[in-house]
C-alpha cells in the first residue's frame, strides 16, 4: 500500500508503560490530503498513539516515519512540519486573540509581514475580527476551538494532528468546525484526528478503530458499514465491540 503519497508510515509501533501495553503493534499508512480518523473508546490507546506521532512520547519499539522523517531520530525536525491541537486546545487564555496569533506565528518563524497578512485572513475567515483584542478566556468554546485549529496550521504544516478536538461542543458547532478541517484537507494538509464521536467518524476519509491498544478495523466508513451491515458508524462500532468481547 505504501507509495510516494504516504505521509505517515507506522509499523509495529509499541508503547508500554511499565507492564501495561498502551499501544500494541500498530501498523498503518496515512496518505497526503487524507482525513484519517482514529476511533475508539476512552483508554483504547488513541491519545498515546497520536502523542507518539507528534513526538510528545517516545515509542517503546517499532518503526515510525512522519513527513518523510524518522520518528525516533528526527523528532525536532518533524515538529517544523506538523501542527497539533489537543483536547484542551492549549491557547493562552490570558492573552488576546491577536497576541496568541503573534506568539505562535513567531515561534514558527513566520516573518512579520506575512504574519500580518495571515492574521487578517484568519480573523476574517473565523469572523473573529471584532474579538481580536479580547482575551481568549472570554471567548465562547466554539470560537476557541476554531482559533486553536487555525493556529495549529498557521505555519502550513504537511500534517495536523487533532486529539479529540471537538470535546464539549454541540453537534452544530462540531459540524462548523469540520468545515474548517475539510478546507485544510482541501489545501493539501493531511489531517489525523482521534475521536470517540461516531458522527465525526463519518466525516473521515478512512478510519482505524482501536480497542484495548490494538487496531481492530481499518477502512473507509462506507466499506466498514457494508462489512458490518450497519447504517451508521455507531452501528459498526457496537457490532465490533460485541464481536471482540
Amino acid at each position: 500500500m505504501e507509495n510516494e503519497n504516504t505521509v505517515i508510515r507506522v509499523r509495529d509501533l509499541v508503547k508500554k508503560f511499565g507492564q501495561f501495553v498502551a499501544d500494541d503493534h500498530l501498523s498503518f499508512d496515512v496518505y497526503k490530503g487524507e482525513i484519517f480518523g482514529f476511533l475508539g473508546a476512552n483508554g483504547a490507546g488513541k491519545t498515546t498513539a497520536i502523542r507518539m506521532l507528534c513526538g510528545l512520547l517516545e515509542p517503546t519499539s517499532g518503526e515510525l516515519t512522519v513527513a518523510g522523517l524518522d520518528g525516533f531520530k528526527q523528532r525536532e525536525a518533524i515538529k517544523r512540519r506538523i501542527g497539533y491541537m489537543s483536547q484542551k486546545f492549549s491557547l493562552y487564555e490570558d492573552l488576546t486573540v491577536n497576541e496568541n496569533i503573534r506568539l505562535f506565528a513567531g515561534i514558527y518563524g513566520i516573518p512579520t509581514h506575512i504574519r500580518k497578512e495571515k492574521t487578517e485572513e484568519l480573523l476574517e475567515k473565523l469572523e473573529l475580527g471584532s474579538a481580536r483584542k479580547k482575551l481568549v478566556r472570554d471567548l465562547p468554546l466554539g470560537w476557541k476551538q476554531k482559533l486553536a485549529f487555525s493556529l495549529a496550521i498557521i505555519h502550513d504544516p504537511s500534517i495536523v494532528f487533532l486529539d479529540e478536538p471537538s470535546g464539549g461542543v454541540d453537534p452544530v458547532t462540531r459540524r462548523r468546525f469540520w468545515d474548517l478541517i475539510y478546507e485544510a484537507a482541501h489545501e493539501g494538509i493531511t489531517v489525523f484526528v482521534t475521536t470517540h464521536y461516531m458522527d465525526e467518524a463519518e466525516y473521515c476519509h478512512r478510519v482505524a478503530i482501536m480497542s484495548a491498544g490494538k487496531i481492530v478495523a481499518l477502512d473507509t466508513p462506507k466499506a466498514l458499514k457494508k462489512e458490518w451491515d450497519a447504517t451508521s458508524m455507531d452501528g459498526v462500532f457496537l457490532k465490533l465491540a460485541r464481536s471482540n468481547e
Binding site: C54, L56, K79, G83, K88, S90, Y92, I107, Y108, F161
Partner: peptide
Amino acid sequence: EIGTMEQLNVTPI
C-alpha cells in the same frame, strides 16, 4: 498544569 506546555513542546522551540 494547564496544558500549554504540551502545545509548546510540539513546536520547534
